[in-house]
Simulated assay, not measured.
Amino acid sequence: MNTFHSNIISIYERKGKEWLDELLGLVSAISSKMGLRDLREVTNLTYNYVLSGFQGDNPIILKASPDNAGLKREAFALKCFAGYGAAKVLAEDEGVLLLERSMPGTSLKSYFPDREQESIEIACGL
């Protein structure tokens, strides 16, 4: 049993085991409903089931959890930060979030030491 499965069962007990047993069906249903494709598990899952993929040509993250209330709080927080660099909430369903996938760009680490001031300004702007 991997860390993710152990965590879910440890926290949610029987409800967690049932959720894990139904997880692939849930992902399949959501994928069909929302037109998702090329879904791949992210590495190092711990407390949420997270997949990256595409909705049409748009890169997405699909996040599922037996903690529906926690996902609702996360969606609310992300919506509060809309327009300030946070990932956009594309859709919500019971126990599932569909998020815009942030695509990595240039690391600020690469700015040092030659462009330190510029990197500070970028970080402060976020």
Rank of each mutant, 00 (worst) to 15 (best):
T3E: 11
F4K: 02
H5M: 03
H5L: 06
H5S: 07
I9A: 08
I9S: 01
S10N: 14
Y12G: 00
R14N: 08
R14F: 00
K15A: 12
K17F: 07
K17Q: 12
L20A: 00
L20F: 01
L20P: 09
L20Y: 04
E22S: 13
G25V: 07
G25H: 07
S28N: 11
I30K: 10
I30C: 10
S31P: 08
S32D: 15
S32E: 15
K33A: 12
G35N: 08
G35A: 03
L36P: 10
D38E: 14
D38R: 15
L39M: 11
L39R: 13
E41P: 14
T43E: 13
N44A: 06
L45S: 00
L45Q: 11
L45C: 09
Y49Q: 07
V50P: 00
L51R: 08
G53A: 11
F54S: 03
Q55S: 12
N58W: 14
N58D: 15
P59I: 04
I60Q: 05
I61T: 08
I61K: 05
I61A: 12
L62H: 00
L62D: 01
K63F: 06
K63H: 04
K63T: 00
A64M: 15
A64C: 15
D67M: 03
N68V: 13
N68M: 08
N68Q: 14
A69N: 13
K72M: 13
K72T: 09
R73T: 01
E74W: 11
E74T: 09
A75P: 03
A75H: 05
A75W: 05
F76A: 11
F76D: 10
L78S: 06
L78R: 09
K79H: 08
K79R: 15
K79F: 00
C80A: 12
C80R: 15
C80I: 03
F81K: 01
A82H: 14
G83M: 02
Y84L: 15
Y84M: 13
G85Q: 05
A86P: 04
A86C: 11
A87Y: 03
A87F: 02
K88A: 10
K88D: 05
K88I: 06
V89A: 07
A91F: 03
E92F: 08
D93F: 09
D93R: 11
D93E: 12
E94Q: 12
G95W: 06
L98M: 10
L99T: 09
L99P: 03
E100S: 09
E100R: 09
R101Y: 02
S102H: 12
S102C: 13
M103R: 09
P104V: 04
P104L: 07
T106K: 07
S107G: 10
S107A: 13
K109V: 14
S110W: 03
S110H: 12
S110N: 12
Y111D: 09
Y111T: 06
Y111P: 06
F112T: 05
P113T: 07
P113R: 02
P113V: 00
D114A: 13
R115K: 15
E118A: 11
E121L: 10
I122A: 04
G125H: 13
G125L: 06
G125I: 08
L126Q: 12
L126W: 13
